[in-house]
Design a protein around this nucleic acid. Structure first.
Lengths: 342, 342
DNA sequence: GGTGGGTGCTATACCGGTTTAGTGGACCGT
DNA sequence: ACGGTCCACTAAACCGGTATAGCACCCACC
C-alpha cells in the first residue's frame, strides 16, 4: 500500500502542491470551490500528512517526551504513572502530537536522553516528574530551551511551568480527619526527602498538625513496599508509638498495613492507616484503606494542555489542581481508649 | 542554541554534505584521513542526525509503537506493562529507535491509531499485546504491512511474528506444586476468555491437572480486583469448594486473598493461593503469595530485538521464552486434613 | 483607457538528511 | 604518449511537506 502525498492530490485536482497545502491548512490563496474540491479528494484517498516531512519543514517534531527514572520493579506497582499517561494521552489524542515514553535507569541517562531528543529534534517539549531539590535536570532543560511542564511542585521548578496539586489542603484534610477521630499522636511515612513534593507535604503536614494541636512526626522511606514496611515496624517500636500513620503512596500504605498486622497490631483498632494516594490497591486489602483521592487522569490532561500551549508559543505559567478529597474507609477509626485519655 | 547540521560539518571540513554523509555512515567514498577529520568535527560540535530529515529521506520513522487498551484504572495496578516497557526500552536504547506509547480507550481506537501512525509514517513497527481470539487488529496490521511482534501467544497471531512464554510448563509447575502438597481439587480464576493466552492457559491447566490425576475447573474473571474477589467468593460457596486457587494475575490473587480472609477462610490453612504473575504485590500481602515468576523485562527486550530484526527486513518468525519458575511462599500449604482424606 | 489593487494560482526555495550521477586527477600498463 | 581504471570527492536530485515571491487576470475607478 502506498501512502498518498499532497503531490497525488495536486495531480488529481489539477493544481500545484502549494495550492493543496493552502487548502489543507486553511490558508488564504485558493477559491472556496477549489478548496472544497481539494479537501474532498484528500478525504477520499485518505491523505494524512507525513509527520517527518511536516516536522522537517516547520521545525516541530509533533511529539512530547516523558521520562521516568524509577526502577522498573517499583514503577510497575505505582498506579499513578499509568493514570497520568492516560490523561496526557487523552488531551493529546485530538491533535497531531504523540507521546514518547521512556523508562530510564537513572537521572544521568534521563538528562542524556533530553539532550539526544533535543539534538535529534525528536520532541517539542517534555513532561518532568519527580522533581528533586536542586534538580540538575532543570539546568539542562533551560539550556536546551526545551518547553517543559513540571508535574508536581512549582516551588523548585526554577521558572519552568508546572502543574501541581494542592498538598497543603490535602495534608489538612488528612490531619483533621485523624484529629476529629481523636488521635493526638500521628506519624507520616514519606517518600524520598530529596523530592520537592515530599518537602512540601512534610511542611504542610507538620503545619496542619500544629494547627490541630496534635503531635506529629515524619519518618523517611522511599515509596517501596520494603521501605513502607520497615518504617512502620520502626514507628510501632517507638516508646510512644503513633495511633495513626499517613503514608505518602498507596504501595507503602498497603505494605505498612501488612507489617502492622504481622506485628499483631490491629488496624484500625490500635492503629489507623491513611494513604496519600488512592488506587484499586487501597480497596482490595482488608481493611480497605482510607485515602486521599485525586483525579490523576485530569491532572495528566491538564499537564498536556499546558505543554501544548507552551510549545505553541504560549507564555510560561503554572496551574493548580483542585485539592485531593479524603475518602474514609475501614482503616481509620478512633484511637484505643487507653492512649486517647493518656 | 542552534542544532548543528551536516552542512555545518561540511563547511568546517571544507567538503560537501555528501562527503560528510559518507563519512558519518561508514560509506565508501572518502579517504580515511578525511573521514577521521569529519568524525572528529562531528563529535566536537555534538552533531546528531535530525530524526525528521533522516526519516523523510530514508523512509523509516525511527520509532516503534505500543498501544494498550485496557482501562487506565486497571492498568495502573498491573506491574506487567511497566516492566515490559522497561525491557523494550533497554533493547532500544542503543539504537536510534524511540517508543511511542499510547493508552487507548478501546480496540476500535487502537486500530484507528495504527492507521494513523501508518499514514503519518510515525512508526516502523508495533508491539501488539493482549491478543484476542479472532482479533480484528491482525487484519489491519497485515493490510498496512506494518511490522508487528505479538507479545503473547503465537497460536492466534495469524502469521505475525510473536514472542511468547511457555504457559504449558508454567501450568504444569503450578499444578504439580499443588498436587505434591496433597491437593485433589483445585480451581483457577482466569482473565478474559477471549484472550488467547487465557485459552492456552486453560487448556494447559486442565491438561496438567488431568495428568496429575486431580480435579480442576476454571472460572472466568477479568483481571480486575473486583473480578478476582467475586470469583473467589463464588468458588468458596460451591458445594465442594477447591482447596487451592490459581489466579491469572497478581491483582486478582491479592484481591482473592482478601476476599477469602473476609469470608473467614484461613490462607493457607484452608485454602492455598497461587498467583500466575509475580510482582512486589505478591510479597507485601500477608501471607505472601506463592507465584509463577518470569522475567518480564527480558521478555520485553526480546520482543524489541525481534521487532528490530523484522523492521530491518529480517524474516518473520516467533521466539519462545524460558518458562516461568514457581516461587513458593507462605500462601500455599497442604490442604486441610478433613478434605484431604475425604 | 491606463492605473491600481485584489484574487487565485504557479514556480520555486527550503528544511536536513541520503543517494546517484558525474568529474578531475593520479596512477597504471603498453 | 595515450587510453583505461580507480579513487576521492562534488553537484544535484530527492523525500513531502510549508512558505514566499511572482504572475496573469479581472474589476473598479478617475
Amino acid at each position: 500500500m502506498k501512502r498518498p502525498t499532497i503531490a497525488d492530490i495536486a495531480q488529481r485536482a489539477g493544481v500545484t502542491k502549494a495550492a493543496v497545502s493552502f487548502a489543507l491548512n486553511n490558508q488564504p490563496g485558493v477559491s472556496p470551490t477549489t478548496r472544497q474540491r481539494i479537501l474532498e479528494i484528500a478525504r477520499e484517498i485518505g491523505w494524512q500528512p507525513n509527520s517527518a516531512a511536516r516536522a522537517l519543514s516547520d521545525g516541530r517534531a509533533g511529539a512530547f517526551g516523558l521520562v521516568i527514572d524509577r526502577p522498573a520493579g517499583i514503577l510497575g506497582a505505582e498506579p499513578f504513572f499509568m493514570q497520568l499517561i492516560a490523561g496526557i494521552q487523552g488531551a493529546l489524542a485530538e491533535g497531531h502530537t504523540a507521546l514518547l515514553f521512556t523508562v530510564a535507569e537513572d537521572r544521568q541517562s534521563e538528562m542524556e536522553l533530553y539532550r539526544t531528543w533535543w539534538a535529534q529534534r525528536r520532541v517539542d517539549g517534555v513532561f518532568m516528574v519527580d522533581l528533586r531539590i536542586d534538580d540538575p535536570r532543570i539546568a539542562v532543560l533551560r539550556e536546551l530551551a526545551l518547553p517543559t511542564v513540571v508535574v508536581g511542585a512549582p516551588e523548585g521548578s526554577g521558572g519552568l511551568s508546572a502543574v501541581w496539586t494542592d498538598d497543603e489542603t490535602a495534608a489538612k484534610l488528612a490531619v483533621e480527619h485523624l484529629a476529629k477521630l481523636g488521635h493526638r499522636r500521628i506519624a507520616r511515612v514519606t517518600g524520598m526527602t530529596d523530592l520537592w513534593h515530599t518537602r512540601i507535604r512534610t511542611d504542610a503536614f507538620m503545619q496542619a498538625a500544629s494547627e490541630a494541636g496534635i503531635e506529629a512526626h515524619c519518618v523517611t522511606a522511599d515509596y517501596t513496599a520494603e521501605g513502607g514496611a520497615d518504617a512502620t515496624t520502626a514507628l510501632l517500636a517507638e516508646a510512644e508509638p503513633p495511633t495513626a500513620i499517613v503514608y505518602d503512596n498507596d504501595l507503602m500504605a498497603v505494605s505498612g498495613l501488612g507489617a502492622a498486622q504481622r506485628a499483631g497490631v490491629d488496624v484500625p483498632g490500635e492503629l489507623s492507616v491513611v494513604s496519600w494516594d488512592d488506587s484499586v490497591l487501597c480497596q482490595l486489602v482488608h481493611p480497605a484503606l482510607t485515602a486521599l483521592r485525586r483525579d490523576v487522569v485530569a491532572y495528566g490532561a491538564h499537564a498536556a494542555q499546558r505543554l501544548l500551549e507552551l510549545a505553541g508559543g504560549g507564555a510560561p505559567g503554572s496551574r493548580g489542581e483542585p485539592p485531593a478529597v479524603l475518602t474514609p474507609r475501614a482503616s481509620s477509626a478512633p484511637p484505643p481508649a487507653r492512649r486517647r485519655r493518656r
